[in-house]
Amino acid sequence: LVRYRTISKIPQITLNFVDLKGDPFLASPTSDREIIAPKIKERTHNVTEKVTQVLSLGADVLPEYKLQAPRIHRWTILHYSPFKAVWDWLILLLVIYTAVFTPYSAAFLLKETEEGPPATECGYACQPLAVVDLIVDIMFIVDILINFRTTYVNANEEVVSHPGRIAVHYFKGWFLIDMVAAIPFDLLIFGSGSEELIGLLKTARLLRLVRVARKLDRYSEYGAAVLFLLMCTFALIAHWLACIWYAIGNMEQPHMDSRIGWLHNLGDQIGKPYNSSGLGGPSIKDKYVTALYFTFSSLTSVGFGNVSPNTNSEKIFSICVMLIGSLMYASIFGNVSAIIQRLYSGTARYHTQMLRVREFIRFHQIPNPLRQRLEEYFQHAWSYTNGIDMNAVLKGFPECLQADICLHLNRSLLQHCKPFRGATKGCLRALAMKFKTTHAPPGDTLVHAGDLLTALYFISRGSIEILRGDVVVAILGKNDIFGEPLNLYARPGKSNGDVRALTYCDLHKIHR
């Protein structure tokens, strides 16, 4: 019993810090008490220290592992850092350059016999395009090294910054494609005289377009951006097909006994025919423009016929181009109408809503002055909100995010209106959640004399007048207030005048 009563005193000691020596009952000389009392004092002292730490809000209350900052290894790049964003855009520009100039170089340097010394005699450094290609190869190699040090988000939505895990993730992902696209074939085969082989191998750079397509997928929600990307894709495919079309004609031209190829026909049409040795002929500019003209006309199913396939190889390629053109029509131009419709969806919704308003007016036989006010209010409210119901949009977000959005939407009023000066951010967040926005066209009466005042109004834009009878008592403008002081009276009061809008007004109100 003594032991039980001794232990039962522990909660009292913990909360009230009572010393055991003052209790005459606990001072009985028993061996059990002498053993338990020192333990009680020690526990009391420890609990006292913990309570003191909690009340003082000291940093040592938290466990040590929670006080440590997340460790980022040296030379690790955050995937959302500004440097990584700028670097990704730079790589994107280099990939676009590669997609345009690599097929052009591979096709127009394929057994090209233009006048001038061969590239091997001039030297590697004197070729501007080769120098640019070398810079692109170096940048792609540097990009691989950067990807080995860039964080990523795993399946659990955690940012991984450990170098080993980053390397394994990159090896399992895009490393092989990036490595093949970054191989400097110019340096590996330079001086061997195989410019045709170098041009063909350099087309491996186009593998990076797969990554670019995935990154550009984030802009699919913007109709104008999608339309622009589709047109660029169409032009890029036409450019690639033009390079292939020229390569076919250029390879067949020296081996044909009869002059029936499209390059021969082009030379005869523009007065620059090929001679018996295969030299001469149109310039590279004429060849490229004509090839691009043929691919565009074939892809769009126009086909004027002034550039036509004559050999079997050219006919087979033309059939493939027609098939590609039909697929592009289905996948690209078939979506253009939907994209344009999405661009004008706001206008369509406006006309639909206006039609419903006019049908309501016609069905209920609203008189002319009231009908005009109804239409003007709808037009003004639509121009202010673009038909978007803010309350319906915010309803799907958590309250903390709703408060931040409301604070942002009402920031101008909260910053410049005098009653809100000096208020804490928590108070402003709470008030912003209570605001209701209303609009009024010129001549609209917001409050009639004798109406119950259940709200306090803040003028965000425009001006109003307060009338008693036919006498203008006051004219209020931006950041002015009218209405009933909230919670100042037990019952809502009545208006002693009319409140009429002089201009288009936007008002925020808080109800009782």
Results as ranks from 00 to 15, higher is better:
residue 99 A to R: 01
residue 237 I to D: 01
residue 446 L to E: 01
residue 447 V to C: 06
residue 249 G to T: 03
residue 405 I to D: 01
residue 347 T to L: 06
residue 309 P to V: 01
residue 358 R to I: 01
residue 363 F to D: 01
residue 194 S to E: 14
residue 188 L to M: 12
residue 259 R to T: 12
residue 365 Q to Y: 01
residue 123 G to E: 01
residue 415 Q to C: 06
residue 329 Y to K: 13
residue 231 M to C: 05
residue 256 M to E: 15
residue 139 M to W: 01
residue 384 Y to H: 14
residue 392 A to M: 08
residue 167 A to Q: 01
residue 119 A to Y: 07
residue 274 Y to M: 01
residue 245 W to I: 01
residue 243 C to Q: 01
residue 274 Y to V: 03
residue 201 L to N: 01
residue 247 A to Q: 01
residue 355 L to Q: 13
residue 223 G to Q: 06
residue 260 I to L: 10
residue 247 A to L: 05
residue 102 T to Q: 01
residue 310 N to Y: 01
residue 345 S to C: 03
residue 95 V to N: 01
residue 170 Y to M: 01
residue 206 L to T: 05
residue 225 A to Y: 06
residue 405 I to Y: 01
residue 300 T to P: 01
residue 263 L to T: 01
residue 200 L to Y: 05
residue 377 Y to C: 11
residue 299 L to W: 01
residue 219 Y to A: 09
residue 107 A to F: 01
residue 192 S to L: 05
residue 144 I to E: 01
residue 118 P to M: 11
residue 242 A to M: 01
residue 138 I to M: 03
residue 322 M to V: 04
residue 128 P to K: 05
residue 421 R to W: 03
residue 430 A to V: 07
residue 227 L to K: 01
residue 227 L to V: 11
residue 298 S to A: 14
residue 86 V to C: 12
residue 353 Q to L: 07
residue 223 G to K: 04
residue 436 K to S: 09
residue 314 E to S: 01
residue 168 V to E: 05
residue 187 L to V: 13
residue 385 T to P: 04
residue 440 A to V: 12
residue 174 W to S: 05
residue 128 P to Q: 03
residue 175 F to T: 01
residue 370 L to G: 02
residue 369 P to L: 03
residue 438 T to Q: 13
residue 165 R to V: 07
residue 359 E to M: 03
residue 353 Q to V: 03
residue 231 M to E: 11
residue 337 S to W: 03
residue 125 A to Q: 07
residue 359 E to Q: 10
residue 288 Y to I: 01
residue 323 L to W: 11
residue 70 P to E: 14
residue 207 L to N: 04
residue 247 A to E: 01
residue 214 R to M: 03
residue 81 S to E: 06
residue 291 A to K: 01
residue 88 D to Y: 01
residue 277 S to M: 10
residue 380 H to S: 14
residue 286 D to F: 01
residue 362 R to L: 03
residue 326 S to I: 03
residue 215 K to C: 04
residue 433 M to D: 01
residue 382 W to V: 03
residue 355 L to I: 07
residue 364 H to P: 02
residue 90 L to F: 11
residue 313 S to M: 14
residue 271 G to I: 01
residue 193 G to D: 04
residue 376 E to H: 15
residue 261 G to M: 01
residue 297 S to W: 01
residue 439 H to C: 07
residue 68 Q to H: 13
residue 203 T to F: 04
residue 308 S to V: 04
residue 125 A to V: 07
residue 224 A to E: 09
residue 74 R to G: 12
residue 410 N to C: 08
residue 405 I to W: 02
residue 282 P to I: 01
residue 193 G to I: 10
residue 237 I to W: 01
